[in-house]
């Protein structure tokens, strides 16, 4: 069953059109990676899905919540779409558990005791049960990113967007974050990732979407896409990325 549905999404910055009509369907429980060179529009596309980037044309739907150009009330949509950022963006004045509790208390009006329980469970899920009271600057990059994942999970989103979530990490910290994502995928969470980790994309994703010049150029199962790229752009891209 389709959970996220994009139809003819267009987005311009001034006269520069960065998304030129994107159609994409993501089913419940699917793990989809957006790949492509920088500047291909993949991050912008991801950010339109929870309304961080306003769209200029087309429509998108997440679990029944519609978004069209000019929509300003995004709260209902955002409660269904979680997001994790490259730079973590944890709230530095709050401890790990307070970071995770904040939105459930403020946005969902959960009472604090209940929110704390949910937050503790989310932190345990990402392997940080012992770091509840730590502040972001006392945590490593990998730990911070895992808190950020817990923070998104605490809102119980239907789909989680991950925007190059390992790109700002030291190499030795990448795996602890990817393992959390892998576990979420196994549990059936719907995930849309922008990633440069090709090996991870190949191993974990059900579907790869290759973007080029603001359009979807190819999509399909990872093995098939990597083994037999149909377009010159993709075969060039596959040749240029290392499978580390």
């Amino acid at each position: 069953m389709s959970l996220v549905k994009l139809q003819g999404i267009r987005k311009s910055y001034g006269s520069n059109e960065v998304l030129k009509g994107i159609d994409l369907t993501v089913n419940e429980g699917q793990v989809v990676a957006l790949i492509g060179r920088s500047g291909s529009g993949k991050s912008t596309l991801l950010r339109t899905i929870n309304g961080l980037e306003e769209i200029n044309g087309g429509a998108l739907e997440v679990d029944g919540e519609m978004l069209r150009p000019g929509h300003t009330n995004l709260r209902a949509l955002r409660m269904k779409v979680g997001m994790v950022f490259q730079q973590f963006n944890l709230f530095p004045h709050l401890s790990a558990i307070e970071n995770v509790m904040l939105a459930p208390v403020v946005v969902k009006k959960q009472n604090k005791a209940e929110a704390r329980e949910v937050a503790a469970a989310c932190l345990a899920k990402v392997g940080l049960a012992d770091k509840e009271k730590s502040y972001p600057d006392q945590l490593s990059g990998g730990q911070q990113q895992r808190v950020a994942i817990a923070r998104a999970l605490a809102m119980q989103p239907r789909v989680l967007l991950c925007d190059e979530i390992t790109s700002a990490l030291d190499p030795e910290l990448v795996n602890e974050v990817l393992n959390v994502v892998r576990k979420l995928a196994e549990e059936g969470m719907t995930l849309i990732l922008v990633t440069h980790e090709m090996r991870f994309a190949r191993d974990v994703c059900d579907n790869l979407v290759f973007m080029h010049g603001g359009k979807i150029r190819e999509q399909g199962e990872p093995e098939q896409l990597f083994a037999a790229p149909a377009t010159a752009e993709l075969s060039q891209f596959v040749g240029s990325v290392a499978f580390h």
């Binding site: 929870n50 961080l52 997001m83 950022f85 963006n89 939105a103 403020v106 950020a148 998104a152 809102m155």
Partner: peptide, 9 residues
């Protein structure tokens, strides 16, 4: 952006 994506006004 982080607080916005969590649905805060």
């Amino acid at each position: 952006e982080a607080s916005e994506s969590l649905g805060m006004t």
